[in-house]
C-alpha cells in the first residue's frame, strides 16, 4: 500500500481515476483471477502428460491428456449424444425441482400446519440416499427416462424447497409491519416483500441444486445400468469400464466435470445478475 503511494508520488497531482494505485491494483487482481487458475490447470495437465510419458504408464492404467483429447475427437458423436442426454436429464430435473420446490415452499410459508404435515416426507426423501431408492423406482416406473428423472429430481428438490420456505419467512419484521400498515393485499405482500426477501436464499439453493441435479442424473444412470439405447455419460463411463477403454472413460468423465463446471458458472452468474446490486453476498466491496 505505502509502496504504491511512493511510486506515484512524483506525479501525485496527476492521479486520475485511470491510473490511481487503487484502480491499477484492481485491474491487476482481475487479470490474476483469470491467469492464475488457467496457468495452474495447464501446469497440472502438462505435469500429468510428462509423468505418463516419462514413466511409460500404459494407457489402460492412466491415459495421457493428449490421448484423452484424441478419444474426445474420435468418439465425438457418440459422446455428444450421451452428453445431450445427460444435459436434458439434468436440466429437466432441475426445472421440476424448481417448480415443485418453490410451489411447496410457498405453501409451507403460507401455512404452518401444511408444513408440519408434509415436512417429514421431504426430509425422508432427502436423507434416504438416492442410490438406495433408485432400483425401486426403476422397477415401478417402466419408462427409464422418467425413472431417471425422478431420481435426479429427488436429489435436487430438497434444497430448493427448504431455502424457499426459509427465505419467504425471512422478511424483515418492520417491513412486514409497514405492509400491514398500508393494508397490502396478500398478493402485493408476496410480490413486493416476500419474494424479494426470499431471492437470496433461492439463489443459494439454485447453486446447490444445479450441482445436485447433475449428481442425481449420473448416479441414477449408474444404478440403471447401460440398458436402453438412448443413454447418458454415466452409461458411457460404465460401458468403457466393462470394455477396459480407459481413455474413453476419462473422456466421458471430463465431459461430466465440464457440465458441472458450466452449471456452476451459469448459476453463479445468474445469482450475481439478480442480487448484485443489493445483496451482501454478491456485492463487491471497495477497499
Amino acid at each position: 500500500m505505502s509502496i504504491s503511494i511512493i511510486e506515484s508520488s512524483p506525479g501525485a497531482d496527476a492521479i486520475t481515476p485511470a491510473n490511481s494505485p487503487q484502480i491499477r491494483r484492481e485491474r491487476r487482481e482481475k487479470q490474476l483471477r483469470i491467469i492464475l487458475p488457467i496457468t495452474a490447470i495447464l501446469l497440472a495437465v502438462g505435469l500429468w502428460e510428462f509423468l505418463v510419458w516419462y514413466n511409460e504408464v500404459p494407457h489402460y492404467l492412466i491415459p495421457a491428456p493428449s490421448l484423452i483429447a484424441k478419444t474426445l475427437v474420435t468418439d465425438w458423436s457418440s459422446l455428444m449424444q450421451s452428453a445431450a442426454f445427460t444435459v436434458k436429464l439434468t436440466l429437466m430435473s432441475l426445472a421440476l425441482a424448481i417448480v415443485g420446490g418453490v410451489a411447496l415452499g410457498m405453501l409451507f410459508a403460507l401455512s404452518r400446519p401444511v408444513e408440519m404435515s408434509l415436512f417429514p416426507f421431504a426430509v425422508i426423501l432427502q436423507v434416504t440416499p438416492v442410490v438406495a431408492i433408485a432400483p425401486l423406482i426403476l422397477i415401478y416406473v417402466s419408462n427409464t427416462f422418467v425413472a431417471l428423472l425422478i431420481c435426479a429430481w429427488i436429489v435436487a428438490f430438497f434444497p430448493i424447497l427448504s431455502n424457499t420456505a426459509i427465505g419467504l419467512r425471512s422478511a424483515d419484521h418492520n417491513l412486514r409491519d409497514l405492509f400491514s400498515l398500508y393494508q397490502a393485499t396478500p398478493l402485493q405482500r408476496l410480490r413486493y416483500l416476500l419474494v424479494p426477501s426470499a431471492l437470496p436464499y433461492f439463489m443459494a439453493a439454485l447453486k446447490i441444486a444445479g450441482g445436485l441435479a447433475l449428481i442425481g442424473a449420473v448416479v441414477a444412470e449408474f444404478v440403471a445400468g447401460t440398458a436402453g439405447q438412448n443413454t447418458g455419460l454415466a452409461s458411457r463411463i460404465l460401458e468403457s469400464s466393462f470394455r477396459n477403454e480407459i481413455p474413453r472413460m476419462f473422456a466421458a468423465l471430463f465431459l461430466v466435470s465440464l457440465l458441472g463446471i458450466i452449471i456452476f458458472l451459469v448459476t453463479s452468474w445468474l445469482s450475481r445478475a439478480v442480487l448484485g446490486h443489493w445483496h451482501e453476498s454478491e456485492i463487491k466491496r471497495e477497499r
Partner: peptide, 15 residues
C-alpha cells in the same frame, strides 16, 4: 392517514 417511521430506516434493500 398515518405515516410510520421505525427505529431503523426499514428500507427494502433491493429497491
Amino acid at each position: 392517514d398515518i405515516g410510520y417511521v421505525f427505529q431503523e430506516a426499514t428500507l427494502m434493500p433491493w429497491a
